[in-house]
């Protein structure tokens, strides 16, 4: 049952990503291209994605966290670190650079696999390469350890 509900929830997420435009690099890159404002071709759609998502998650989480525990698991698993460090900032800055280069973020690319688009598979393969590279740097004794 746990796996079935997880699968269905992820299908809802995948449909949301597909409809929103987040799995379309052309749309993502046009959102980030503010120079198009002058030309009248800027596509601000993606601001509506974040707006729509937060309009549901902010009140939704508030309701969920009034309960002591989730329905299908013993406890809520939330990140407990509150430190704003170099790793968080440099990692996020690096992510933004990659997002601006490729137009895919992880949440946009994973549902895009379902369309069969070869470039989505290529991106996800490279993404996996990047995740494993960060782990390899960690085991090589680099002091700053990746979070995921």
């Amino acid at each position: 049952m746990k796996l079935v509900s997880a699968l269905l929830i992820a299908v809802i997420f995948g449909i949301g990503i597909a409809l929103s435009g987040m799995m379309n690099p052309a749309k993502v890159l046009n959102f980030f291209d503010l120079a198009q404002i002058g030309a009248g071709t800027w596509d601000p759609s993606l601001a509506f994605v974040m707006g729509g998502a937060l309009a549901i998650t902010i009140p939704g989480y508030w309701l969920v966290f009034r309960r002591a525990a989730p329905l299908q698991a013993p406890r809520f698993q939330l990140p407990d670190t509150k430190v704003i460090d170099r790793r968080l900032i440099l990692g996020s800055a690096t992510f933004g650079i990659g997002w601006g280069i490729a137009g895919f973020c992880p949440g946009g690319a994973l549902p895009a696999l379902g369309t069969g688009e070869p470039e989505a598979f290529l991106f996800v393969a490279a993404l996996i390469g990047g995740l494993l590279l960060a782990r390899a740097l960690e085991t090589r004794g680099l002091r700053s350890k990746p979070a995921i």
Partner: peptide, 20 residues
Amino acid sequence: IVLGGVVVGVGVSYGGGCTS
């Protein structure tokens, strides 16, 4: 696409998450 993928992978790994 490939370059962006690797850069995103390293970044989200250290940053502890992405857009979602």
